[in-house]
Amino acid sequence: MARSRIPSKQTRMVFAALMASPLEWRHGYDLAKSAAMSSGTLYPLLIRLHERGLLLAQWKEAERPGRPPRHVYRLSAKGLAYARQIELTAEDGVALSVSRSPA
């Protein structure tokens, strides 16, 4: 059974950033800028969310030739449901009109 826990402020911010465009694959640097947090805070959160099945991750070919593929992320169905459950607010830095729309 999944443990229910109160998400930290940083977790909420990551969810808010991902919910701004829930179907779009986002890379780490972009997410860090959107969520206004450092990579040191972001990556442990992404890894944890991925391990809990809330986040999908895949490799995407780089847009510019000669660059390595990038790891991109978006919320899974479970993650989307969880994001709605935790009721993100403007304080989490989310574009609320988008985040509250059905997936």
Binding site: H27, S39, P68
Partner: peptide, 21 residues
């Protein structure tokens, strides 16, 4: 992922900040 992401970041100060993170 972090190695490849590092290679995709423009700006040396941004890359350094990213690396510390």
């Amino acid at each position: 992922a972090i190695l490849n992401e590092h290679a995709s970041i423009a700006g040396e100060k941004e890359r350094l900040g990213w690396a510390f993170g």
